[in-house]
Write a protein that binds this DNA or RNA. Structure first.
Lengths: 157, 157
DNA sequence: CGATTAAGTCTTGAAATAAGACTGAGTCAA
DNA sequence: TTGACTCAGTCTTATTTCAAGACTTAATCG
């Protein structure tokens, strides 16, 4: 299979990765979550090849994860901001960051902490069940086909 | 910057992506979470080039995300299983899947549902604060440097 | 005028990926 | 005991992507 066929897979992870699974894309989003908005700032912070950055930003805009808007007209200058859809990736990004904190932070601890403004404390993200509100252990999850599951061939010859 | 320098960045997301940010790696892990264990099954399910699969599995084993063990000796046959560290990626994977469900599921709904065995209901993951136990809105999070933050040059000439 | 800034595009060489043939060790069935 | 098959890879070749940095365009600043 080639990467560009991913979005046609009937799998939500594959479709998500078709949008944000490229090399660099999640790092571009990290910068966006840290309020970086301009092409040259993304480029300088990431050290990414400019061509690649151009392509990644365009893709994220196409997918509605970032919005590109002019903040001045002459000369034209643009900024890239997270949309609501893009903001929806925050739980995933935070979970990845906290996994990194747990396994790859240096002796001194994590480089960045997250504070929950509502309660005032630094926190880690906890996977919680939308149905019962309790923390979920990965081993306590079972999967089963949903309404959009692919029809399977049954009893074929 | 080149990709292989990522793991030296003082950023937990960058270090995480150095492990699981390659093309295909998260799909390999999807299969692992769905209890796939053998080389040929990964290969057949993903349609990934065998060479790439070989390299990805070896990398995940190196990083302690998967464990490779022989399940028979003659001929030698191996299986790849998630370690505890690998299981720790579940919240991140689930968050990505649920983002895909929200934005890319077809008309009929998501292809796969997740049931919380403890309460018996299908659920979505909710980002919850480890300090206060409440659901966290992305806009209610502030970041600040942690103990492992890079020392910044101060007052340089 | 000359330097600087922002947001790219272009060029070139290096690296990664896709597709599929091939290998080797062993099993199974006739 | 030959021939088909399984598993877990390796090898080859062509295509695609990425890295690095020079170049471009339009406008402002001193």
């Amino acid at each position: 299979m080639r990467w560009e066929d991913l979005s046609r897979e009937n799998c939500s992870l594959a479709r998500t990765l078709a949008v944000i699974g490229d090399r660099w894309t999640l790092l571009v989003l990290r910068e966006a979550f840290l309020k970086v908005r301009r092409f040259d700032d993304f480029q300088a912070n990431l050290g990414i090849a400019r061509q690649v950055l151009t392509e990644r930003l365009a893709h994220l805009v196409d997918e509605g994860v970032l919005a590109k808007t002019a903040y001045q007209d002459r000369p034209p200058r643009f900024e890239y901001r997270l949309t609501e859809k893009g903001l929806g990736l925050y739980p995933a990004v935070l979970a990845l960051v906290h996994w990194g904190d747990a396994h790859y932070a240096g002796r001194k601890g994590p480089p960045l902490l997250h504070r929950h403004k509502a309660c005032g404390h630094d926190f880690r993200s906890v996977l919680t069940c939308s149905a019962c509100g309790e923390a979920v252990d990965p081993r306590a999850v079972e999967t089963h086909p949903g309404p959009g599951a692919a029809r399977r061939r049954v009893g074929g010859s």
